[in-house]
Simulated assay, not measured.
Amino acid sequence: MKETFSPSVRALRGAPGPPAPPVAPPDPGALAAKVRTLAPSMTRSMQRVAEAVAGDPAGCSHLTVTALAVHTGTSEATVVRTARLLGYPGYRDLRLALAALAAQQATGAAPAVTADIAVDDPLGDVVTKLAMEEQQTLADTASQLDTVQLEAAVSALSGARRTDVYGIAASGLVGQDLAQKLLRIGLIAHAHTDPHLAVTNAVQLRSGDVALAITHSGTTHDVIEPLRAAFERGATTIAITGRADSPVTQYADLVLTTACSRESELRPAAMSSRTGQLLVVDCLFIGVAQRTYDDAAPALSASYEALAHRHTPRAARQA
């Protein structure tokens, strides 16, 4: 039996779905991650509000909705819309989260947002800043990753007759990493970075197969199309994306979201989004390896032995 789908996916497939469970506001510590993830899709006025609350949670927690609107040069309606987009029922809930986040930062429990890399930064500073950004992206992705969806994805992959993975450019490299890991434990998996091959393979999938799409923006047509084809043929579909409301999720039974640090001139989104995607891929692989351990362990041992044999000089092997 297929996993429980979200209401939007059930509607697309024509099946009635259960009432959507109430959504709890995000943890205060995840606020900065939420801002970084959603900022590119916000209007400029909403970005100003989001950046203000993430950059100075202590100061903004003391502001009324009117005061924050004045402070950011926006309107009260924009402040309320921003709060709701960030996952809070209203501005009052956002203020409570800001106060909690300020308290965490005061005790060192929540890291501050790091500065962008400048063109004249010494290489030592570049190493430090990149390391901090990578750590932040990993922490943000872990904090917002839905473990219920993750468990369902692990179950689907563990029992799949075949898994196809779709991704382009940097996301394609992450997809190849996942496919290779699954192959190492004896599962049938293929990564497709060519959009034509992706679609022609997707139309061969059926119930019992898994199609997994990786796209940070969630809008990459060459990734959405093969996932849609697999979706329509009854395969279980999974999306790894930075946007839970992006177009790719309309054809995903399961959605795993990743975080991304702020994009800058010398640090494009593809760099930081790849970090979060690799964390999700590793979580999927470990989960599948745990579920299929009796088969996975011997397969891993066999692959290790084969590689060790290949790396041993011929003379030593013949001795």
Rank of each mutant, 00 (worst) to 15 (best):
1 M>C: 07
6 S>C: 08
9 V>G: 00
9 V>R: 04
11 A>R: 08
12 L>R: 04
16 P>R: 03
22 P>C: 09
24 A>T: 07
27 D>T: 01
31 L>G: 02
39 A>L: 15
40 P>M: 12
41 S>L: 05
46 M>E: 14
47 Q>D: 07
48 R>T: 15
51 E>S: 09
59 G>V: 04
60 C>A: 08
65 V>D: 00
67 A>R: 15
70 V>A: 09
70 V>R: 00
71 H>D: 11
72 T>N: 00
77 A>H: 14
78 T>W: 05
90 G>D: 15
92 R>W: 08
95 R>N: 04
99 A>S: 09
103 A>W: 00
110 A>S: 14
112 A>R: 15
113 V>T: 13
115 A>L: 14
126 V>R: 11
127 V>E: 03
133 E>H: 09
136 Q>V: 01
139 A>I: 00
143 S>C: 09
144 Q>T: 10
153 A>D: 01
157 L>E: 00
157 L>Q: 04
159 G>Q: 02
167 G>V: 06
167 G>I: 04
170 A>P: 05
170 A>E: 02
171 S>Y: 14
175 G>N: 06
175 G>A: 05
177 D>V: 03
182 L>S: 08
183 L>E: 11
188 I>G: 07
192 H>L: 12
194 D>A: 12
196 H>Q: 13
207 S>A: 13
207 S>E: 14
209 D>E: 05
211 A>W: 13
211 A>T: 09
211 A>K: 11
215 T>G: 08
216 H>T: 10
220 T>S: 03
220 T>G: 02
223 V>Y: 05
223 V>F: 07
225 E>P: 02
242 G>F: 05
245 D>H: 11
249 T>N: 02
250 Q>A: 15
253 D>S: 03
256 L>E: 02
258 T>R: 01
262 R>W: 03
263 E>A: 12
267 R>I: 02
270 A>W: 03
271 M>E: 00
271 M>P: 00
272 S>F: 03
275 T>G: 05
275 T>H: 02
275 T>F: 01
277 Q>A: 00
277 Q>D: 00
279 L>K: 02
288 V>T: 10
291 R>M: 13
294 D>W: 10
294 D>K: 15
303 S>V: 13
304 Y>N: 12
307 L>C: 09
310 R>V: 08
313 P>V: 09
314 R>E: 12
317 R>P: 03
319 A>H: 12
319 A>I: 05
